[in-house]
């Protein structure tokens, strides 16, 4: 007997599935900016970058994705549901009592979610420790942390930016979603802040899937990577 086809998931998700999934949470086609600012980056991560398996979300060799900017998690939930981490029906109960899907994600409740976020400035220090720990364990998995440009206001990030570079964590990548929402801004640009400490940096269009893929899959030996993904400024 010859097996001619490998088992496949019943439906291969496409980017065009996302608006319908988002609408299951928001009730219409209008999505708040914090939810949609991350949408393309999340899609590219789960579709083309991360080594993660919805059938085995705790696999030891999985890439670790930490959504530090937990506010407006609808895009995250839509992408996770599209990839089969949990049933799409969960989206209908978003934010309801008893639902695992809150207005900030909680790793203790949702398959495939690594951390609970909400308070800003926690994901990057956690990611630094995670990358250090994986390296100490001889585990080649990557650690990718998503933050917002306003989240970088929190000083804890700047502690971690220095530590990550000083310890040469080249398996660590930070994606900064830049929708120009930081109240006091980043003179000279966000990338410069990382580059000063020794990070490899790249500025990309946060809606350009191919550019995001290149930026998120380029390895820089001995240095962590910061990808600054610019999207439309928040109104």
């Amino acid at each position: 007997m010859v097996l001619t086809t490998a088992p496949t998931t019943p439906h291969t998700p496409t980017y065009n599935d996302l608006p319908v999934l988002l609408s299951r949470m928001t009730g219409d086609e209008k999505h708040e900016p914090s939810a949609t600012s991350t949408l393309d980056v999340l899609w590219v991560l789960y579709q083309r970058v991360l080594n993660v398996d919805p059938r085995n979300p705790e696999a030891a060799d999985r890439d670790r994705f930490l959504l530090s900017k937990g506010h407006g998690p609808m895009a995250y939930y839509a992408v996770l549901a599209a990839h089969g981490f949990f049933p799409v029906e969960w989206l209908d109960e978003f934010g309801q009592p008893g639902s695992p899907l809150g207005h900030h994600p909680d790793g203790a409740l949702i398959p495939g979610v690594e951390i609970a976020s909400g308070s800003l400035g926690h994901g990057l220090p956690l990611g630094v420790g995670l990358a250090l720990g994986l390296r100490a364990n001889g585990n080649d998995a990557r650690t990718i942390v998503l933050v917002g440009d306003a989240e970088l206001d929190e000083g804890s990030n700047h502690e971690a930016i220095v530590v990550g570079a000083a310890y040469g964590l080249d398996a660590l990548t930070v994606v900064v979603i830049d929708n120009d929402s930081s109240s006091l801004g980043w003179p000279g640009g966000i990338a410069r802040r990382f580059a000063t400490e020794g990070w490899a940096t790249v500025d990309v269009n946060g809606r350009d899937h191919d550019a995001l893929t290149r930026a998120l899959t380029t390895h820089h030996s001995g240095r962590p990577t910061a990808v600054v993904a610019a999207v439309e400024p928040r109104k």
Partner: peptide, 24 residues
């Protein structure tokens, strides 16, 4: 790889320790 001095950065001290715990 297992003895990490983060300098005078106590938020990173705890965050880093927690991340290491996350890795096992």
């Amino acid at each position: 790889d297992r003895v990490i001095n983060v300098g005078i950065r106590e938020q990173a001290l705890i965050g880093t320790a927690a991340g290491m715990a996350h890795s096992g």
